[in-house]
């Protein structure tokens, strides 16, 4: 297979990369664009550390070929803050201590961001399900659930 050109948007910026069609989205994000906020924690699409948003939906970027993103808009953890202002879920994570080692945090934030943009008065169980695909070995999840709950309850506004 020959290399091909991929044109897509990442965090609002247009990118053009020349890649092998088998290249995974996570590889383009980390290795080609140097956006290392997105992590990898497994080879089996199990851990969620590489979660990004594609056109607003949360997706494990190790499960997608980069060429599938032609013309689409990808958001990574680096795209959550705007002009130095953190997004509501980022601030809520700080307030609730919803991370420890921080390695799962970028993926967790992206799952949460996609969920929050859709959710209307979610139950605790729905919040838990929204991060079911993201493994956190440090926190036991409850502080993450509290952080998402606070945002969905309207306690944090966009700055």
């Amino acid at each position: 297979m020959e290399k091909q050109v991929l044109r897509f948007k990442v965090n609002g910026d247009e990118y053009e990369v020349f890649i092998h069609p088998k290249t995974l989205l996570v590889e383009v994000i980390r290795d080609h664009l140097g956006l290392t906020g997105t992590k990898r924690g497994c080879e089996t699409v199990s851990c969620g550390a590489c979660t990004v948003n594609i056109n607003g939906a949360s997706v494990k970027s190790c499960s997608v070929l980069a060429v599938q993103c032609e013309g689409l808009e990808v958001t990574t953890v680096e795209g959550l803050e705007k002009d130095g202002k953190l997004s509501p879920i980022q601030r809520s994570f700080l307030d609730h201590g919803s991370f420890q080692c921080g390695f799962c945090t970028p993926g967790m934030l992206m799952s949460a961001t996609a969920f929050i943009s859709e959710a209307k008065n979610p139950t605790k169980d729905q919040i838990k399900e929204s991060i079911e695909g993201n493994i956190c070995r440090c926190t036991g999840y409850n502080s993450i659930v509290r952080a998402i709950e606070a945002v969905t309850a309207g306690k944090y506004k966009e700055e």
Binding site: R30, G34, L35, T36, G37, T38, K39, R40, T76, V77, E78, L80, E81, L86, Q90, F93, L94, D95, G97, F99, G102, F103, T105, P106, L109
Partner: peptide, 21 residues
């Protein structure tokens, strides 16, 4: 008190050995 490494960790700025190039 917020975790003092928190901003680095929630913004993707924290660079782990895994990220070193």
């Amino acid at each position: 008190v917020h975790n003092i490494d928190g901003v680095a960790k929630v913004t993707g700025r924290a660079t782990y050995t895994f990220d070193v190039k």
